[in-house]
């Protein structure tokens, strides 16, 4: 592994309609750790993740993933992406959903079972996805992203609407995956989740206002509370 960075973005510009969503963004995300992408709703987190997944039309700039341009056939085999809405088929059972995504990724039934266990949904394997609760559907969607055993896992707000116990379990799972060498980019608009990441990217209005560890963020802003740290930075960047 020559390249220590899983994601390298240079001078990325994304325009959607008349809105400049990302005016000019450069960032490098190191391999093998959990990087949090935090910021308020509408700050461009999803657009940035879509750019990394290779499905966002770019105005200009360069997005490289695992050493290759984003979205090439070879990166698509190595990158798992969980969209913000639980993008699984409501009219299939949980097992059928996972089986389909496992076949597309070329992994077997075992991978589907392991992914299901990882999100704690073994007892719902034969339930119709439409009949699950919102949080359970999110977990099916997460399992679908996990089952390709990706080198890079892009998770767009995976913990939204989950109960605290489950949220804790998932963050533990993310940590364990990173310890095994997976790179995770996890977006959230809940600032306290920043504390669970190895690194934090703070976004506001399409720009990065911080790229550091949570401790460094506290130190730099003189705040122990990460929510306050964000406010300090946001007000500082606006001034």
């Amino acid at each position: 592994m020559t390249d220590p960075f899983a994601i390298e973005i240079e001078e990325l510009v994304v325009v959607r309609g008349k809105n400049v969503v990302i005016p000019d963004l450069s960032v490098r995300v190191p391999r093998g750790c959990v990087t949090g992408l935090l910021g308020p709703s509408g700050c461009g987190k999803t657009t940035l993740i879509r750019a990394i997944a290779g499905i966002q039309r770019l105005r200009s700039g360069r997005v490289h993933v695992l050493g290759e341009p984003a979205g090439t056939p070879s990166t698509r085999e190595r990158v798992g992406y969980m969209t913000q809405n639980s993008s699984v088929y409501p009219d299939l059972t949980v097992r059928q959903n996972l089986h389909y995504f496992a076949t597309l990724a070329g992994t077997g039934e075992g991978a589907a079972r392991a992914a299901l266990a990882n999100v704690g949904l073994q007892d719902k394997a034969d339930a119709l996805t439409a009949e699950l609760s919102g949080g359970q559907r999110t977990r099916v969607s997460l399992a679908a992203a996990l089952l390709i055993d990706p080198e890079l896992l892009l998770l767009d707000e995976p913990t939204v609407g989950l109960d605290p116990v489950l949220r804790r379990d998932l963050w533990q799972l993310f940590g364990a995956l990173a310890a095994d060498g997976t790179t995770l980019l996890v977006s959230s608009h809940v600032m306290e989740e920043a504390g669970r990441c190895d690194r934090v990217l703070l976004m506001r209005e399409g720009r990065l206002i911080a790229d550091c560890s949570p401790d460094e963020l506290r130190r730099r802003t003189g705040q122990t509370d990460l929510e306050q740290a964000f406010l300090t930075l946001a007000e500082g960047s606006a001034a």
């Binding site: 979205g71 056939p73 969209t83 913000q84 597309l104 990724a105």
Partner: peptide, 14 residues
């Protein structure tokens, strides 16, 4: 509209 197409297009599926 459900987002599943978006997900499919990030998989190796052509």
């Amino acid at each position: 509209t459900s987002g599943t197409l978006e997900r499919l297009l990030t998989t190796p599926l052509r």
